[in-house]
C-alpha cells in the first residue's frame, strides 16, 4: 500500500475540545456552574459552531467568528445570557489553549519520521498554530479550509489540500474520527483512517462512534494507528 503523506483532521480528532471547554466554562461561570450541565453546554456550542462552518464556500467569516457568534445563542439557551463580553471572550479563547489527546504527540513524531504529516482542518490557521505550539505538535504544514476558501466536506477542499501537499489523493491517508469527513475524503480519492475518540463529546459519547463504511484503517487510538500505518506502508 502506498501512503506517502498523512493529513489529520484536527479540531475533533486531535484536540480535546470537550474537556477544555468544560473546564473553561467552570472557571468563568464560578458558582453558577453548579446548577448547569456544562458537558451539555460545551456540546451544544460545538454543534452550533459546526453547523455554521461545515460546507461553507468563500464565507465572509472563519471558525473563530463561528465560535464567537454561536456562543451567543448557546449561552442564551442555557440561562447564561447575562455573561459579559469579557467573560465570553474568556470562554471563546479556550479554543487557542486546548490540549491535544495525550496519545497524539508521540504518534505524530513517529509518523513524521516516515512521511510528511499535515493538519487539514476547518479551524483557522492561527488557532492551529497556537494549539500546536502549546502541545509541541510539529506538522509539516497546516492546511486550513480558511486558506482554501472551501470547507469540508466539499470535494474541492480535499482536492486542493492534496494538490498543496503535492501528491495524488490516493497517496494520502486522511485521518479523522468523523464519518462525514472520511466519507468525503474517500470520495475525493484519499485513503482513510477512522480513529475512535469515545471521549470526544464527554459523557454523552460521540454521535457516530463507529465507522459507517469500509475505511482503509479503523483504529481505537493513535498508537494503534502508528503501528498499523508504519507496518503496512
Amino acid at each position: 500500500m502506498t501512503i506517502r503523506a498523512l493529513s489529520f483532521d484536527t479540531g475533533g480528532t486531535v484536540l480535546d475540545w470537550h474537556g477544555g471547554i468544560v473546564a473553561r466554562l467552570a472557571a468563568v461561570c464560578g458558582k453558577r456552574a453548579a446548577g448547569l450541565d456544562l458537558h451539555q453546554v460545551a456540546n451544544d456550542w460545538r454543534r452550533r459552531a459546526m453547523k455554521r462552518i461545515v460546507g461553507q464556500v468563500h464565507p465572509a467569516f472563519n471558525m473563530d467568528d463561528a465560535h464567537r457568534e454561536s456562543l451567543v445563542d448557546t449561552l442564551s439557551a442555557h440561562g447564561l445570557a447575562d455573561l459579559s463580553v469579557t467573560q465570553r471572550e474568556a470562554i471563546w479563547s479556550v479554543w487557542y489553549q486546548l490540549d491535544a489527546w495525550p496519545d497524539f504527540a508521540p504518534a505524530l513524531a513517529a509518523l513524521r519520521s516516515a512521511a510528511p504529516v499535515v493538519s487539514f482542518t476547518m479551524l483557522p490557521t492561527a488557532l492551529v498554530m497556537s494549539v500546536s505550539r502549546r502541545n509541541a505538535l510539529d506538522w509539516d504544514a497546516i492546511v486550513s479550509c480558511e486558506m482554501i476558501g472551501m470547507y469540508k466536506p466539499h470535494a474541492p477542499a480535499y482536492i486542493t489540500a492534496a494538490r498543496w501537499i503535492g501528491l495524488p489523493p490516493q497517496d494520502i491517508l486522511m485521518v479523522a474520527c468523523h464519518n462525514f469527513d472520511l466519507n468525503a475524503a474517500h470520495a475525493a480519492g484519499f485513503k482513510t483512517a477512522f480513529v475512535r475518540r469515545p471521549d470526544e463529546w464527554g459523557p454523552e459519547g460521540p454521535p457516530e462512534p463507529e465507522p459507517n463504511m469500509d475505511y482503509t484503517f479503523v483504529v481505537s487510538g493513535f498508537d494503534e494507528l502508528r503501528k498499523q500505518v508504519l507496518t503496512t506502508r
Binding site: E69, S70, V72, S76, S84, V85
Partner: peptide, 10 residues
C-alpha cells in the same frame, strides 16, 4: 452589550 442586547445578538 452596551445597549443591553448582547443575548439577542443572534
Amino acid at each position: 452589550e452596551r445597549v443591553g442586547m448582547l443575548e439577542h445578538a443572534g
